[in-house]
């Protein structure tokens, strides 16, 4: 740590300034009265006394000016040292925060490792028993086994999703220009087997913009939204998922949306689906952790954007993401409106 200049306390300095001002005014008073008496011809002193008095005045002026400058210099030094001290304190706090963050990250990592290890064992041994018993495992026993495995899988997904949720906003990811046309196509390609299995038509617009942000996080947002659209498409006559983009009405942000003609969400659950572990009751039978949309919201809002939901039960859903332009004005965090 840099050694700071030793500066007098602010109380002592105030006194010095007041003292120098006082001497200055006393000097002024004497000088003015002296001039006055000489101009008026009163001349209360003889020439020698006047010279001595002028000498005293001059000295008083010099002392007061010197004191004043000295005090001001000390005052500046004090202010500088205070700024330096505060900066130093902030730097220390900053280092502490970075260390704490690293500690939390390591703690979560260890916890996740310790939580995952038994799941690997459960999954492993249950599948070994299943292999060994083969045909002998049937009826209720087979059902119970499948449930054990499904639960272990669910637990694994929960841990992974919770880890991701905790990382958003805490761990800063490198930002870059992300071509959404390419990214959305990649995501759709990844989900191709499920999309084809359910005979869903996916229409991706050519007008998708280039976003500024972490490719990983933006990928998570749209992977979650498109995956959700696939998961909750239900059984419409012609299942369709559309991914589109344009500018926000005021032009300050990019607007991207994922729209489906699936089962939709009741108005009363529009707020809840973005909360962690909350899922619409109609979706309970569908595999999921209830964390996906919370991650979406957290990522988008952390980047100064907002997520909008427009949906009605039985009439599909549209999730819209407003993402700030690279040099655009950041939106108020936490803003979320329902699209008209």
């Amino acid at each position: 740590m840099r050694k700071m200049k030793k500066a007098p306390s602010s109380g002592v300095k105030e006194q010095r300034i007041h003292f120098s001002i006082l001497i200055f005014f006393v000097g002024m008073l004497f000088t003015v009265s002296l001039w006055d008496s000489y101009f008026n011809g009163t001349r209360p002193f003889d020439k020698d006394v006047a010279s001595v008095l002028i000498l005293i005045m001059g000295t008083l002026f010099s002392i007061s000016a010197g004191l004043f400058c000295w005090s001001m210099e000390n005052r500046r030094a004090l202010l500088e040292s205070q700024v330096e001290k505060r900066t130093e304190e902030l730097n220390v706090k900053n280092v502490e925060l970075v260390e704490k963050n690293q500690e939390v990250e390591n703690f979560i990592h260890i916890i996740s490792h310790d939580l995952k290890a038994p799941i690997v064992s459960i999954q492993g041994f249950s599948s070994m028993i299943k292999d060994e018993l083969g045909e002998a495992l049937r009826g209720n026993a087979l059902d119970y086994f499948n449930r054990i495995q499904a639960n272990a899988k669910q637990m694994n997904m929960l841990i992974l999703d919770l880890l991701e949720f905790s990382r958003v906003g805490r761990v800063e990811d490198e930002k870059e220009s992300v071509n959404m046309r390419e990214l959305v196509r990649e995501i759709v390609h990844e989900l191709k087997p499920t999309i084809e299995k359910q005979a869903i038509r996916v229409a991706v617009s050519d007008e998708l913009p280039v976003l500024w942000g972490s490719r990983k996080r933006i990928g998570q947002v749209f992977r979650n939204l498109i995956q959700n659209a696939v998961k909750y498409i239900g059984e419409p006559k012609e299942p369709l998922i559309e991914v589109g983009g344009s500018n926000s009405p005021d032009g300050s942000r990019h607007l991207l949306w994922v729209k489906d003609n699936g089962m939709g969400i009741k108005k009363e659950f529009h707020e809840k689906v973005f909360q962690i572990f909350q899922r619409a009751p109609s979706t309970k039978k569908i595999e999921g952790t209830g964390i996906g949309l919370s991650i979406v919201k957290k990522i988008v809002e952390h980047n100064g954007g907002s997520v909008l939901l427009d949906s009605e039960e039985g009439h599909g859903s549209q999730f819209s993401v407003l993402w700030p332009r690279e040099n655009g004005k950041q939106s108020v965090l936490g803003e979320r409106k329902l699209a008209a």
């Binding site: 690997v120 064992s121 492993g124 041994f125 070994m128």
Partner: peptide, 11 residues
């Protein structure tokens, strides 16, 4: 170090 994992991998 995890004996369960070791057994699973070994098997």
């Amino acid at each position: 170090d995890n004996p369960d994992h070791a057994l699973l991998i070994k098997r």
